[in-house]
Design a protein around this nucleic acid. Sequence first.
RNA 1: AGCGGGGUGGGGUAGCCAGGAGAUCCCGACGGGCCCAUAACCCGUAGAUCAGUGGUUCGAAUCCACUCCCCGCUACCA
Length: 711
Amino acid sequence: MKEEIFIGVAWPYANGSLHLGHIAGCYLPADIFARFCRMNNKNVLMVSGSDEHGTPITITAEKEKTTPKNIVDRYHQEHIENMEQFGISFDLFTRTTTENHKEVVQEIFKTLHKKNYIYRKSVEAYFCKNCNRFLPDRYIEGTCQNCYHENARGDQCDECGNIHDPQDLVEVKCKICGNSPEIRTSDHLFLALSKFEKKLKKWIEDKKYWKSSVFKFTKNWLNQGLHDRAITRDMTWGIDVPIKGFEDKRIYVWFDAVIGYLAASKEWSNNSDDSDKWIKWWKNNKSKHYYFLAKDNIPFHTLIWPSILMGYDDSLNLPYDVPANEYLKIKGEQFSKSKGFGVWVPEVLKKFDADSIRYYLSINMPENKDSNWSWNDFIIKNNDELVGTYGNFIHRVFTFSYKNFGKIPKRYNLDDLDKITLDKINKTSIELKKSLNKCNFKKGLRIAMNLAQHGNYYFDQKQPWNLIKSDEERCSTSLNICLSIVNALAVFMSPYLPFSSQKIWEMLGNTTNISDLNWDESISTLNVNYTLEKPKTLFDKLSIEEGMIEEDLFSNVDLRVAKVIDVKDHPDADKLLILQIDLGELGKRVIVAGIKKFYTKEEILGKNIIIVTNLKPAKIRGVQSNGMLLAASDSTGLVSLLNPDNSNPGSRIFIDGIKHNPDYILEFEKFKEIKMKVNEKQQIVYKNKILKSEKGPVFCDKNVKKGAIVS
RNA sequence: AGCGGGGUGGGGUAGCCAGGAGAUCCCGACGGGCCCAUAACCCGUAGAUCAGUGGUUCGAAUCCACUCCCCGCUACCA
């Protein structure tokens, strides 16, 4: 009897392209798990789809002067393509605008209403007459009563952090059109989450096997008491509320989207030969439900969705595990659609193999803490690990076998190392299964890579290039064992690297689809005597330039050597000095610097320092500063200038390997993102590389503590 | 602000919940080997007061308390 596994993956919002954060956060881990389960006697049903309702989509549509339908059609199509190109093996990837979805959502809505889990309540909200719509919090801004900051959001002021209700703001503006909205009352339907508290508490009791972050976070929410939440909105783009008197409202997206898991399962059944098939997964106490999502989505899946399920029909399966990931970031910043900051899936797929990306995202997955996407690290890991260790092992084995035997060679007598190696294959299989069963994907990949490394070791120890001349039987045996490793690796890696695994599988003389096969059976079959084709390499090495889709932030800054030719006190400030500096070919200019506490005028006069020349000019206490000097300040508060030795004024300060392509005007915010630190040799380090002038490395002028920050 | 997560050799990480010999693995550095392979591979060496302070204990990276720093959620982007 096969065990039923349901895998639900968070629904991507159809308001923009996917970025690598989405893939690393949930689609890739879900897919690895699904592929692994299918190969290990599990009946997997994996579904998701585009989340296509809600205000942001209508706003995008207005901006582009088109319909919401057009927007979601475009991104849904793109999502489908991207999922397929990445090899995310959904059984169904649907959307929330299908007729089926609407029916299921409305049915659940009506049932919950009938059972009194949904009730009516009147609320006050801003209404923009000009836009003719109620404004969600994120589309309101006004003046904060606390600090008088003008662009406070509806829910909180970014400036002072004060939390408030939108009604507390003064001079409220609609973020869309700029007009002043008015307060109107509106009736909404609320989901009585508070009624599920007891049941949820009981349900959560035995979930100690969840990731500690997921478990603690959920428990904490529960202990603070659940608040009922509005599940309707005043808008037109969404699912109709199936209750009288709410004809002009729509069901709120978060209620709508999670129900997609059940709706999609039903849709998948309807497409199959048996429309009741979904019941095998949903009303079966042996079936396990896994939900893959990122950390911001945890309460929706561990509290709200279970509540909906319990309230609707308590024979339905609740989540078994929610292995939520943290975030994949880039340069320590969160990927963000709104800021347009991230690595976009459609672009990345044009340039790189899906398996290359899958490898890096897997080995660098944000399983327990945020991780970073780095182009440099991506290239290093691709070249050294995927190509060097893994690809090269497979290639050298195939090439040697092809050249010297032309077919898969036979196995004769085994020596100790042969036996150890064969045993290593089995041990790897057992360990890998253990890790993958627990959703430890990073560890699993390390385990598999470890076998590839052992393969290389074995190959070196055996020296088949010598054996072929002295002892053909032993050579044949060694290669047979190497190919057994290759065979096993193809199986072990297939959840992670499905495309290349399939290629290896075919190179070994199989015509089947590796992901349809049984794990244990496949690792032990080798087609001895199969005539080998001329081997081709599986992965390509990448060069740094190829990785540089996105420029390094450092490229944007123009650093130059400057000679201080005059120093004055700032008339209205006791910490500031006004420096006149000579920038050689760039001429002379005035800057303001806050270093009076650390350097006397005499000390600084005539010194060579380093200046950011393209920083947006700023008035500092009434004096315009046309640039900023670089200094290092350590944890003790000591500040040191940077010393470019006796380089010529105007000459560039640079870092090897980073292009010089400065912005015309560099925003201060952007400059702040460039994080430079002082190392133990008093050099300035940015991303592991040191800052140089034409005379060599730049040093601190005074001795500061290691780790001092340069700004 | 409240809550949660994290701070481990130059970079990135495992271990922590169930405390005990040399603190894991990958990259990088250095030295050696090999030449079948995509200048790939294999072996060895150096490098960490496990953020800080105090405590519990025969013994703490691991447990407790406090402090500092980073991140997230709360608050419609995975």
